[in-house]
């Protein structure tokens, strides 16, 4: 499959007063045209950081990217100039924020903010009037199963429920055509029924528009329902990558197995019963495998050396010395 996005050895560090927090630690990941992939890992492992670096929306004064490439359709996003990255943001990739309540500006109407996205997309010629834009926005609001789009269009964010805000975030991401959608834990703040609705809605919209999808989630169970391929992330490393079917049939990495024990839902923000210990310190990470302190199968070598990604079976990668 042709690769739309290819992340190579990406490292993302935050500068803190205690030194650099080396959060994303050389990850590799790719998304094919029309492919749906999942990025699964517990809270704080760096999922959002990775995705925000694709759109370059991390605070450049706090973030340092010492290494890596993010190749999108042949060119490296990290080396694009302002106009080029704006084109990618406007026409190619859009992201749904993890926090729908914080993602909307409180002092402008929802409609105003959607219109701004449409206006900036630059995908419409001069004959496209304000009225056309508005009807495009209304249609997009209706597409996310909101029954009275005109009223919602004129509402302010504080007048909407959490579920509504989540849907509006989806509208903003999908109102103009894009090739890749990044959905950062959509619906986690909502109750399970609504979350489920949101997931199904997202999948149908993405399939209908023939887009690629990166779905971020805490839960392998959610990923299993939605995506073709799964990346399992632990403390800034991709520890395992495989087709959804293969991963569930034959999970290799000890961390993945721990996660499997908590399917269907790993509670957000915490460490499950399945895995002992906590996410390691990012400022002074161990030279070895970052999962080593919590690993039930740890060997001596794991504390000294980083396990390289190895091909276990076809299309099934794992970074663990057990399989090396």
């Amino acid at each position: 499959m042709e690769r739309l996005l290819d992340i190579r050895n990406l490292k993302v560090w935050y500068s803190t007063y205690r030194g650099f927090a080396k959060v994303v630690d050389g990850i590799n990941m790719h998304v094919g045209k029309g492919e749906k992939v999942g990025l699964v890992g517990e809270s704080g492992c760096g999922k959002t950081t990775t995705m925000k670096s694709i759109l370059r929306v991390l605070d450049s004064r706090k973030v340092h990217i010492p290494e890596g490439e993010i190749i999108f359709k042949g060119s490296d996003i990290l080396r694009m100039n302002y106009n080029e990255i704006q084109q990618v943001r406007r026409r190619s990739i859009s992201m749904i924020s993890q926090e729908p309540s914080a993602a909307l500006n409180p002092v402008f109407t929802v409609g105003d903010q959607i219109m701004e996205v449409i206006r900036h997309s630059g995908q419409f010629d001069k004959n496209f009037s304000k009225k056309d834009m508005k009807s495009l926005a209304i249609k997009a609001i209706r597409d996310v199963l909101i029954s009275d789009p005109e009223r919602i269009f004129d509402s302010y964010p504080h007048q909407l429920s959490g579920g509504m805000k989540q849907r509006i975030c989806i509208v903003m991401a999908l109102v103009t055509p894009r090739e890749l959608l990044i959905a950062d834990e959509p619906g986690t703040a909502l109750d399970v029924t609504i979350q489920d609705q949101i997931h199904r809605l997202l999948r149908s919209l993405v399939e209908e528009k023939h887009m690629s999808l990166i779905m971020i989630t805490h839960s392998l169970g959610v990923a299993r329902e939605l995506v073709d391929r799964i990346y399992v992330m632990y403390a800034g490393n991709i520890v395992e990558a495989a087709k959804t079917k293969d991963l569930f049939k034959n999970p290799l990495h000890p961390y993945t197995r721990g996660l499997m024990d908590c399917v269907p839902r790993l509670s957000g923000g915490g460490v499950s019963e399945g895995i002992y210990g906590y996410i390691p310190d990012y400022i002074n990470p161990t030279p070895g495998c970052r999962f080593y302190p919590r690993c039930p199968d740890a060997k001596e070598v794991c504390s000294r050396q980083k396990p390289p990604a190895t091909v276990a079976t076809e299309n099934h990668l794992v970074a663990c010395f057990k399989y090396n």
């Binding site: 759109l55 859009s94 924020s97 914080a102 993602a103 500006n105 996205v117 900036h120």
Partner: peptide, 18 residues
């Protein structure tokens, strides 16, 4: 400037001056 809605708007390619 550090609010999520600013980073979201930036991510949609809204121009810096807007």
């Amino acid at each position: 400037m550090g609010k999520e809605y600013i980073s979201v708007a930036t991510g949609y390619g809204i121009s810096g001056s807007v």
